[in-house]
Design a binder for these strands. Structure first.
Lengths: 342, 342
DNA sequence: ACGGCCTGTCGAATCGATTCCGACAGCGTA
DNA sequence: TACGCTGTCGGAATCGATTCGACAGGCCGT
């Protein structure tokens, strides 16, 4: 049961270093002894101890993934990021260490970063001003963010161009003749806290609305179906002329839909809904959602790729990638019709 | 930048062992030197190297969480388990190492288990016959399963009593006068592969249907809304007398609902739907789903608790816990009415 | 004043692997 | 035959922490 490298060496009648060389292949070992040693290894099912190897090599072959603490209600998009990261890491023979951070569990973050438990870190849910980013910068540990801060220069990141995508949604709706368009954002707390996508989406919305000469109203909305329902109830009451919604709030979508239905607005005949969402969500929605489909898993995988770059050549110029996928036309948008209440 | 324990010792003018003792507190250190050492530690921001500590102590303070590889479409229930595990682990100052396993990424599992990267493992998505379980048994590494095999004796597990819960759903529907009840199971592949919940739910259904003297039809269904829609389409065509569905397939629920709507069956007036789901899903559904609410996060946390027990006292008798929450009456079930088509 | 105890600290071994350096065997060549 | 070279292998240092045994000094007692 105690299978150390010395045990293997003893059984094979060689020294520990020779066993190590057949393990790592960093020096030639004659065919005969190589096979003898390999036989012993297979027989006892030996695997080198990961801690010892990490200590000696200075590399843990592990990446940290910092996720928001309220894992219970992760967005579909966030989930896709996690899935993409995990899959890509597995393909690269890397393990993923999870760290629920940003809330009360600060210890986890510190353990992972300061204790050198990982070779690099991937950060999600970036704020425009993010102290985790500044701490990582100081620590010198390679890291990549999914999302970007207000000043992303000098670091590697991948992000979705929410500003541009929401603007394109507005353009699409305006092309269809809609003159009163609403943006259903993420929660007010998130936006106020400087959450990147929420703030960028809003500014993109404001800009596009102005450019197209339509009127726009932007509202915040919690991340549940119930929130979406309440939000749209209020929206329709306060702004009855609104005939279209653009949103980046996936979780609220079912509620948005129910509120519209209850108000007698049928999608896409009476009312149009579009936005930016994970492909899976958009297709599974009813009616299928016209939306900019975020390649979520690819983004997660790309984050791993960038992180590996930073780990292997920390002095190289950091790189980044901004995703701005086209809008997939489905069944949730149509030409504007005048609301019956007018 | 290179902050080793020797560096701290040198700066404080003591030996490495003394620094270690103020770190671990395993031997008394005089007030004066303790404060001097602590000052140096705070000044340079020193943290002990986790790999070195793990090597020496033989414990990594990390647990492995083996998840199904297709992380893209994890169930809400599965997500809740993961969230519960992560939260509970963080509270216990444990880190979580993710391993997408069961598919192509076998290397991840082996690295984690054989390389002693973790102190214990939590396994999800258990099959009635599960070779990961047998491998873990052989390895001697402490582990806990969420779900249980056909022969769960001698190991620690937590599970949901799908058989009992589905039976209770059937009872509830029979009480309401429904005489033709369908079970919408998980996918045929999963059930055929010996997936525990699917098989236990089916046997519970068959038993309950027999006991209550109603007729039952059980069908399998993929894990998407589209699958659910297609499944119910076929079901209604083949068995028009069915007036109620019990299901454990959360992801198919929106599709089930749409198919019913399209067929002119309104819930709960014309048709009843119930089953077992995560509370969040059941409440967010429309209409709110009468269902047995699985305390998902608590189950994940309980798995961590049991794992810690096995790690601290490996010789103790393994324990287990079967969850069988009551059915929460909401708005998706009602008295049976004769289908109009008859 | 001296032996013994207790407190605080140090030196060195240890965990399990990697890797540099030197040794040695076998072979070819002058 | 002697020399040098190449291909293999063993010895020992090293990574960064923990921990056991030893020891120096201060305090007490008789």
């Amino acid at each position: 049961m105690v299978s150390d490298i010395g045990e293997i060496a003893r059984r094979a009648g060689v020294s520990r270093s020779t066993v190590s060389y057949v393990l790592t292949g960093k020096r030639p070992v004659s065919e005969g002894t190589r096979r003898r040693i390999q036989a012993v290894i297979d027989e006892v099912g030996y695997r080198p101890n990961a801690s010892a190897r990490a200590l000696r090599e200075g590399r843990t072959h592990t990446v940290g993934l910092v996720i928001p603490p309220a894992t219970g209600h992760l967005t579909g998009v966030q989930l896709g990021f996690v899935a993409g990261v995990v899959e890509a890491a597995a393909r690269a023979d890397l393990d993923v260490l999870l760290s629920p951070s940003g809330g009360e569990h600060e210890r986890s973050f510190e353990r992972i970063v300061d204790g050198r438990r990982v070779d690099g870190v991937i950060l999600m849910e970036i704020r425009l001003e993010d102290d985790r980013v500044t701490r990582l910068r100081r620590s010198g540990l390679p890291f990549v963010t999914i999302g970007r801060t207000a000043q992303p220069h000098g670091m590697s990141w991948v992000d979705v161009d929410y500003a541009g995508l929401i603007a394109r949604c507005v353009g699409h709706l305006a092309d269809l003749g809609h003159e009163h368009i609403a943006l259903v954002n993420r929660s007010a707390e998130l936006v106020a806290a400087g959450y990147g996508p929420g703030n960028r989406a809003r500014s993109g919305f404001v800009r596009a609305v102005a450019e197209r000469g339509v009127t726009g109203v932007d509202v915040c909305c919690g991340d549940t179906a119930a929130d979406g329902e309440a939000c749209v109830d209020q929206l329709l009451a306060a702004h009855p002329r609104v005939t279209a919604i653009a949103t980046l709030n996936e979780a609220a979508l079912p509620g948005i839909h129910r509120a519209l239905q209850r108000a007698g607005r049928t999608v896409p005949h009476d009312f149009s809904v579009t936005g930016v969402a994970a492909p899976h969500w958009a297709e599974d929605f009813h009616p299928p959602l016209t939306a900019a489909d975020i390649p979520i898993e690819e983004i997660g995988a790309q984050a791993v790729t960038l992180l590996l770059e930073r780990i292997s050549t920390p002095t190289a110029e950091p790189s980044h990638r901004l995703y701005s996928p086209p809008i997939s036309l489905r069944a949730s948008t149509g030409p504007a019709t005048r609301p019956r209440t007018l």
